[in-house]
Each structure stands twice: as C-alpha cells, then as structure tokens.
Nucleic acid binder design. Structure first.
Lengths: 254, 254
DNA sequence: TCTTGACTCTTACCTTACGTCATACCCTAT
DNA sequence: ATAGGGTATGACGTAAGGTAAGAGTCAAGA
C-alpha cells in the first residue's frame, strides 16, 4: 500500500503536483501516510477518490461541493446533479444569446465596410467585387484587403493623378532605355523611383497580395469598361495607374 | 459637463461603484475631472464609453481586450469578434458534453435506486409502483420518498412484526375504549404509544407526505393481493401494518 | 455653528483553482 | 562527497470585482 508519491500520482491521474498539494491542504484528498521527512504517500483508496474528484471536476462542480458530496453519504447527489444541469442549461442559453449578438454585430460591421468599400469599386459590377473581395480576403487575409482599401481612400484623386503621370513617364522611359541601352545609368534611377512609388502605394510594406489585389482591380475595371472612356471617373485613372505600376513591378521582379 | 459622480454614473449604467474605481485604476475608464477633494466626475463622453465597455463585457470579452479595442482604432474588431465567436462555440460544445454526461449519470443513478427500491415493493406491479413513486416524488419531493424507502429498509422484518402486533393491540383497544368510555385514562396512554410508533416509522419527523405514502403503499398492496394470503411475505405484513398505523393516525388527527 | 446623514476616498484582504517562483530539505547513485 | 532529481512550504499572481475599515467631504436642517 501507499505506493504513490505526489509525482507518481500526478502522472497517473494527469494532474499537477501543485493540485495535489492544494487538495491536501483543503482536505479534499489527504495522503494516507506522511514519511518522517514530510513526503506525501498515497494508496489505492486515494487514487480511487481522486478519480471521483476528477469526474465531478470535469462536470464543473466547485471543489468544495465535491468534498461535501464525497464526504457526506447523505448528500443528495441526484438533486445536486439536477441543479447543476439546470445551471449548465442556463449558461448554454446565455452563450447562445451571446453568439447571436456577435453574429448580428458582425453582419452590421461587414455591411458597414462593404458600404464604405462600395464607392471605391465604382465601375465594377458589385457581384464581381464581392466575389473577388471575398476570395482575396480568404487568400491574403482581411488585413491586406483592408490595407489596400485604406490606401485607396487615403491617396485621393490628386495624388493618384500625379503618381500616375510620373509612373507613366518612368515606364515609357524604362521601356525605351531597356531596349536600346540596358546598361544605362538612368535605368537604375528609374527603377529606384518606381520602387518609391510602389512603396507609397502599398503603405510601406510591399506584399505580393497587395500588388496582386491592385492589379486584379485594374483588370476588372478594364474588363467592365471597354475602351476606358476618359470620363474623369477616379476609378478609371486608378485602374490604369495600378495596372501600369504593378504590371511592370511584378514582371521585373521575377 | 462632468455631471456624474461615481454613484450617479453607477446607477445610470447599472454597475457598482467599485467597478468604476477598478476601471479607473486600470485605465479603462478615467473620470474627466477630479475635484480638489479627489472626487471623480464623469461627463457624457465617459458615459458613452462606459456603454461600449459594457457591451463588450456582455459578450464576455476580457477587460484588457476591451481597453485595447477601444483605444486602438486599428484594432481588428472583425477578427476579434470572429475569434470570440469560435471560442464561445467551443464553450457551448463543452457544456453540451457536460450536460450529456450528467444526464447519463442521472439515468444510471435513478436505475440504481429503482433497483434498490424494487424489492421493497414486492407484490405490487412494477408499473404501478413506478407511476405512483414518480407522482409522489413530484408531490412531496425526492427527499420524502427516499426517507420512506430508507425507513422501510432500515426497519427490517423483525421490528416491523413487533410494531405491527403492538399497533394492532393499540388500535383494537382504542376502538373498544372510545366506544364505551371516551374519557378513560388509558385512551391517552394508547394515543401516546401510537404516536411513538409512528414517529419511529417516519424517522423522527412526522410529515403528511410520508404517512400518505405509507398508506398508499398499503392500499396498493391490498388491491393487488386480494385476500392477503398469510404467506409470510414481508410486504404483506408491511402493508397491513402501515394501513393500520397510518389510517388511524390520519383519521384522529383531523 | 454644529450635527447628521449621505457620499466619497484609499487601502487591503477575500474569492477560484491553480501556475510559478524561491528557498530549503531529502534521497539515491556514482 | 557530490550531482541530480524529488519534495515541502510559503508567497505572489491571475479576473473581476465584493466587502470592510478608517478617514475625509458635502449639503441641509436645527
């Protein structure tokens, strides 16, 4: 008898030594023997009692109540269990309510962001935007898509037009120079400049997801606005700008 | 501005003063002003912020997280809510498991007590016992029925027979004396003696539920065992005994 | 002006079921 | 003798406050 040290018993039952210390101090599970050195030794009975304790603990019974029901044989176990079941049902109901509230909140928030996002996607059919946006979120994460949309909003028309002009110049010059004199010093300057613009475009962190998202938006716009009429729509310019910027960058990066 | 003292704000929002103290110390909700005496004064903005805090608290968000999401505008609320919802779903699942376990345990326990109870109800069809026992539990509670069954078990055949004989004598004598000489001194003695026996029968606490339950059992037995053959079955004696004991007691009590 | 009652402040200890040190002691094998 | 692992006790920390003690503040009535 009295085979189990704290560590052995803790391993056997899957609890920590500290837990056994605690149960000892609160008179829930006492060792059958203390050695002269003060070491705790447990026997089979204690192992059995521990199993019972853990069973009720699994059911979220408070330890005090477990002690009462194990020590007092007249304890009305049925009633305790019924009461506990009622409490658990109440908790479950509460959680259901919470989940419902969260879902409502989520729908509201998503609608809000969708509404905010809508004017950014002017000129592209809504269902395409929704579909691609959802796909992009699942592929690159909510953060990336939000960042792109935030950048679009932040840049505004004015800066976008400037950047577009600059980038157009750079791209044209790069194409010319590369075909004629790839070793020209100006090539490096142009590439550096383009890098700066793209950095601004991606908010400091150049990520493939962001660039791909920008590029795809440009494509979608071009598809749905054949001929790209120069009607002054911000998205037309935006799309063209993005296509220029990202197409070249991604190509030369490979 | 700064209209609300701690108490006013606490009443308005339905939280305790202590809670406001705590939120102040943990920088979750600071008063807009402190008077020279150190009193906290809150304004409309603080009331609004408190509403938000309570909303997320209702959703079981930890207060630290609430502070983060209210103070950091870049906090990804959608992701937090989704994560929280997942956690709540997991908790719900766990609770479902717990309820299932409790229900199984309850069934097991009830079957056990039914099995133990079965031999006490020998001679009465099981379905009648089950039906009446269930009705009795809902009418007088689990404790009363358990107490009666515990008494039946505890008394055993020997003591029951003795008590039956004694009670039979008492009842006979009482009937005789009451019809002839109601003022006889022996009447009081008999009643006192009968009282003692019934006290023993009900385990010290004479309750209508217990006596009714005993009496009903006797009736049920008589109904289902016409002629009451003197075959030595403990239940036959038990039934007769109980019928005698309780019938008289209840009658004279009215 | 004094008192009374309502209000408020800070500090600190209590709750659950442990986890995580810190410090010191014990035991066994080499 | 020493190294290593096991053990004991005590104290502190967790989340979100509850409860209490002791002291200070404010407005109103006598």
């Amino acid at each position: 008898m009295d085979n189990y040290s704290v560590k052995k018993l803790s391993r056997l039952a899957g609890v920590s030594v500290r837990t056994l210390h605690l149960y000892d101090k609160m008179d829930l599970l006492k060792p059958s023997v203390r050695t002269v050195a003060g070491y705790r030794l447990y026997g089979e009975q204690e192992l059995l009692r521990l199993q019972q304790i853990l069973f009720y603990r699994e059911l979220d019974f408070p330890l005090k109540e477990i002690g009462a029901l194990l020590d007092d044989p007249t304890f009305d176990l049925l009633q305790a269990l019924e009461g506990h079941k009622t409490a658990l049902l109440a908790r479950k109901e509460r959680i259901n309510t919470l989940i419902g509230t969260i879902e409502k909140t989520l729908v509201t928030l998503k609608n809000q962001t969708m509404l905010q996002a809508e004017d950014l996607y002017e000129g592209i059919p809504r269902e395409k935007v929704v579909a691609y946006r959802t796909a992009a979120i699942s592929q690159w994460g909510n953060e990336t898509v939000s960042a792109v949309e935030s950048t679009l909003r932040e840049l505004g028309k004015d800066e976008m037009e400037k950047m577009q002009t600059t980038l157009h110049d750079i791209s044209t010059r790069l194409t010319t120079l590369m075909s004629k004199d790839p070793g020209n010093q100006e090539v490096q300057q142009c590439i550096a400049l383009r890098y700066q613009i793209i950095t601004r475009l991606t908010g400091g962190k150049i990520e493939t997801g962001k660039l791909e998202y920008f590029r795809k938006l440009g494509e979608l716009y071009a598809e749905n606005n054949p001929g790209m009429p120069a009607d002054g729509l911000p998205n037309r310019q935006l799309a063209q700008f993005i296509q220029n910027a990202t197409h070249h960058y991604l190509k030369t990066k490979q």
